[in-house]
């Protein structure tokens, strides 16, 4: 079997798993609104007395929090750190190492199916919301919408890389749970999970520009709302630079870590 087919097979398995637990599959239609409800209600409340907050109109603000909540729910990859931690501690990495594949890409491909499915649900729910509440939610042009999805999916890959790096730190540390939590909190605060970064104190906003977390939520949504202050080409280049840079660092760290790995064998 060629290497590419091995990756594709992993993606297929992750999609098939959705059908194995069908209740989970349908349950997402219920869980999705629950996840976004409170943040959305807070934004609706904040805009009840004012029509503009720090450059965001009511519709822009509500659209912002709706998309960000959906991205956050659909494309979360925190679980990779835990998965790698367990594999290393239990010596299960041996199974992956026996295959002629790139270790990180192989593990990423296992986690693609569910986010793809959730992204489809997000798009359906968002489009329906925009059609039923046109005065509250902005429906962007198709090219902008496609670009937003492309940026969000690329951001998911960056998220995968970051949590994979955290996971393989298990080669040196006994547990990486606390690092995962630190990264997760930083991602939510400095990525714009709670509100547009321009609402935050200037020093936090400026600090966030130098970190990859800004790519997670803020950049895709500002593209959707046509509120980006620099060219799309530059934003695309910046995202690719993070992607390549993190992959190189990850490869180096993985190589160093594997030198310390005690696998299982007989």
């Amino acid at each position: 079997m060629s290497t590419v087919r091995l990756y594709v097979r992993q993606v297929k398995i992750s999609l098939q798993n959705l059908w194995v637990y069908r209740w989970d599959f349908f349950g997402d239609f219920i869980r999705f609104p629950i996840t976004i409800a409170m943040h959305l209600l807070i934004f609706i409340f904040l805009f009840s007395d004012t029509s503009i907050i720090t450059g965001y109109t009511r519709t822009e603000g509500i659209t912002y929090i709706l998309i960000v909540s959906m991205i956050s729910r659909s494309l979360s990859q925190r679980g990779i750190a835990n998965m790698m931690e367990l594999k290393i501690l239990r010596g299960e990495l041996t199974n992956d190492l026996a295959l002629p594949v790139n270790l990180s890409l192989f593990n990423f491909s296992r986690r693609v199916g569910y986010p793809i499915y959730l992204t489809v649900i997000s798009i359906v729910i968002f489009t329906l919301s925009a059609l039923f509440f046109p005065a509250t939610i902005i429906l962007a042009s198709l090219p902008r919408a496609i670009l937003t999805v492309a940026f969000a999916l690329t951001a998911m890959l960056i998220q995968m890389q970051i949590y994979y790096i955290v996971g393989i730190l298990t080669f040196w540390l006994k547990s990486v749970g606390f690092i995962t939590r630190i990264i997760s909190h930083l991602q939510e605060l400095l990525g714009g999970r709670y509100f547009p970064l321009s609402w935050l104190p200037v020093w936090i906003f400026q600090f966030s520009i130098f970190l990859p977390f800004i790519q997670m939520y803020y950049i895709p949504v500002t593209i959707y709302l046509s509120k980006e202050t620099i060219s799309l080409w530059f934003l695309g280049f910046q995202m690719l630079a993070w992607l390549v840079g993190l992959q190189l660092f990850l490869g180096w760290l993985e190589k160093k870590g594997l030198e310390r790995f005690d696998g299982e064998g007989g």
Partner: peptide, 20 residues
Amino acid sequence: GNVEFLVETLVDVEMNFIRL
């Protein structure tokens, strides 16, 4: 049998509403 869906829904309700 598997009621993970029900449990996760309850966790979602709890975690999303309790923190705000």
